Deep mutational scan, measured.
Amino acid sequence: AEIMKKTDFDKVASEYTKIGTISTTGEMSPLDAREDLIKKADEKGADVVVLTSGQTENKIHGTADIYKKK
């Protein structure tokens, strides 16, 4: 799966169907969080990951919607 910015995804959204939401939390780098989200998306058969939230304090927390091409 590839990560797309919401603004970029909005241009092609009609080509995809939302298949779920994924999240990651833990003591990790932003890059590790990104890789974890991609891994989870791949496991669910998603083609595209669109980040919906991200937070960093002591731990990273990120959520994303996942989509499959129609």
Rank of each mutant, 00 (worst) to 15 (best):
A1H: 02
A1W: 01
A1D: 00
E2D: 06
E2T: 15
E2A: 13
E2M: 14
I3E: 03
I3H: 01
I3G: 00
I3K: 01
I3P: 02
I3F: 10
M4F: 05
M4H: 02
M4E: 02
M4K: 02
K5W: 14
K5S: 15
K5Y: 14
K5I: 10
K5E: 15
K5F: 14
K6I: 07
K6Q: 13
K6L: 06
K6D: 07
K6P: 09
K6H: 07
D8S: 03
D8W: 04
D8C: 09
D8L: 05
D8V: 05
F9A: 01
F9H: 01
F9S: 01
D10S: 06
D10A: 08
D10W: 08
D10V: 08
D10F: 05
D10R: 06
K11H: 06
K11S: 06
K11A: 06
V12K: 05
V12E: 03
V12S: 03
V12Q: 03
V12D: 02
V12L: 07
A13I: 08
A13C: 12
A13T: 04
S14Y: 11
S14K: 12
S14C: 15
S14G: 12
S14P: 08
E15K: 10
E15P: 00
Y16R: 01
Y16P: 00
Y16V: 02
T17R: 10
T17I: 15
T17W: 13
T17V: 14
T17G: 03
K18E: 03
K18H: 15
K18C: 10
I19Y: 01
I19V: 07
I19K: 01
I19N: 01
I19C: 07
G20M: 03
G20S: 02
G20E: 03
G20N: 00
T21A: 07
T21W: 06
T21M: 07
I22L: 06
I22Q: 01
I22G: 00
I22M: 02
S23N: 09
S23T: 11
S23Y: 12
T24S: 06
T25E: 12
T25S: 14
G26D: 11
G26H: 13
G26W: 07
G26M: 11
E27L: 14
E27D: 11
E27N: 13
M28S: 07
M28F: 07
M28R: 06
S29H: 08
S29M: 08
S29Y: 09
S29T: 09
S29Q: 05
P30L: 13
P30C: 15
P30H: 08
P30F: 13
L31R: 14
L31C: 13
L31F: 09
D32N: 08
D32T: 07
A33V: 09
A33I: 11
A33M: 12
A33N: 05
A33S: 07
R34I: 15
R34H: 08
R34W: 13
R34M: 15
E35L: 13
E35Q: 12
E35I: 14
D36T: 08
D36N: 08
D36E: 14
D36G: 06
D36W: 14
D36F: 11
L37K: 00
L37E: 01
L37R: 00
I38K: 08
I38L: 14
I38W: 03
I38P: 00
K39R: 14
K39G: 05
K39C: 07
K40F: 04
A41Q: 00
A41T: 00
A41F: 01
D42T: 15
D42P: 01
E43F: 06
E43A: 13
K44R: 14
K44F: 13
K44H: 12
K44V: 11
K44G: 04
K44M: 15
G45W: 04
A46P: 00
A46R: 00
A46L: 01
A46T: 00
A46W: 00
D47S: 06
D47K: 03
D47R: 03
D47A: 05
V48L: 09
V48W: 00
V48R: 01
V48H: 00
V48I: 10
V49R: 01
V49E: 01
V49F: 00
V50P: 01
V50F: 00
V50L: 04
L51Y: 06
L51D: 03
L51T: 03
L51N: 00
L51R: 02
L51Q: 03
T52D: 10
T52K: 10
T52V: 11
T52H: 13
T52Q: 13
T52G: 12
S53P: 09
S53T: 10
S53W: 13
S53D: 13
S53V: 10
G54E: 15
G54M: 15
G54H: 13
G54Y: 15
Q55P: 11
Q55D: 15
Q55R: 07
T56H: 11
T56M: 12
T56Y: 10
T56E: 12
T56S: 11
E57G: 13
E57L: 10
E57I: 09
E57N: 11
N58E: 13
N58Y: 08
N58I: 10
N58P: 10
N58K: 09
K59I: 14
K59W: 15
K59H: 12
I60E: 11
I60Q: 13
I60T: 12
H61K: 12
H61R: 12
G62Q: 15
G62I: 15
G62P: 08
G62M: 15
G62N: 12
G62T: 15
T63N: 07
T63K: 09
T63D: 08
A64R: 02
A64L: 05
D65N: 04
D65E: 09
D65G: 03
D65Y: 04
D65S: 03
D65V: 05
I66E: 04
I66D: 03
I66L: 10
I66W: 00
I66K: 02
Y67W: 02
Y67G: 03
K68R: 09
K68D: 02
K68M: 07
K68H: 05
K69W: 04
K69S: 05
K69M: 04
K69G: 03
K69L: 06
K70A: 08
K70R: 09
K70M: 08
K70P: 02
K70S: 07
